[in-house]
């Protein structure tokens, strides 16, 4: 890890979620991020992914939101630009060239995703020697009681493989109450975050996880970057 990578990861507001044993101790845990549409889930998930890339970890981004690969790449480029705004352009570009190959995007268009198929694809990537993830960020899930078996299966997978697994989504039905939705999925989750819009920011409410961070984290409404209040 270079000095720049060390500095960027050390100053990240995401450190608040590190277990007492440091970020590596997050392996095997499932973290749930829930929010309504347009609140900043993808921005948060991409920040988590870039943070892991900077820590030298291979990241698999699982997308179910109907995005294209190009669209998702542009999300990464945008968030990375904000995160490294202070770096000289050449240094920022060189760093991105170094860390981007550690990321693999895996998209399933509507109706084609099943946990079994996803696990098959991961095994295939590993068997071909193409990619072995240490962190998975998954976006675009429709959250609700019916998703519980899938969340449990993914939590088991994370535990078996020692993966740090972030799962993000919104309520399956528009009018569902998010706190109740996440409560129904809480069992297998180590950390649960709710994104809640406020007047001038988006608050991260920590339903389960390090309570110390509860009142301190916000998403900047302009950049959607996570910051300490």
């Amino acid at each position: 890890m270079s000095d720049v990578e060390r500095t960027l990861t050390a100053r990240s507001a995401l450190r608040v979620f590190d277990p007492p044993g440091g970020p590596t101790a997050a392996a095997g845990r499932l973290r749930l991020v829930a929010a309504s549409a347009g609140t900043g889930k993808t921005a948060l998930i991409v920040q988590v992914a870039i943070d892991a890339l900077l820590r030298g970890l291979p990241v698999l981004h699982l997308g179910l939101a109907g995005d294209s690969l190009a669209h998702l790449r542009s999300w990464y480029a945008g968030v990375y630009r904000e995160l490294t705004a202070g770096l000289p352009a050449a240094e920022s570009r060189a760093l991105w060239e170094r860390i981007e190959p550690r990321r693999l995007l895996m998209l399933f268009q509507r109706g084609t995703f099943t946990v079994e198929r996803f696990l098959d694809r991961v095994r295939l990537l590993e068997a071909q020697g193409v990619f072995a993830p240490r962190v998975v960020v998954a976006d675009g899930f429709a959250l609700g009681e019916r998703l519980r078996p899938e969340v449990e299966a993914l939590a088991r997978f994370a535990a078996q493989r020692g993966l740090e697994f972030w799962l993000a989504g919104r309520a399956a039905r528009e009018n569902d109450d998010l706190p109740s939705v996440v409560a129904s999925l809480a069992g297998p989750c180590d950390t649960i975050l709710l994104l809640e819009p406020e007047a001038d920011a988006v608050a991260l409410r920590i339903v389960r996880g390090p309570a110390s961070a509860a009142a301190t984290l916000r998403l900047d409404p302009a950049t959607l970057l996570i910051r300490s209040a």
Binding site: L69, L104, T112, L125, G129, V130, F131
Partner: peptide
């Protein structure tokens, strides 16, 4: 995937549809 890997390829992503 295996073929691209053998050719020093970096897999950017996969996109399944049907």
């Amino acid at each position: 995937l295996g073929g691209l890997q053998q050719r020093r390829g970096t897999i950017v992503g996969t996109d399944e549809d049907g």
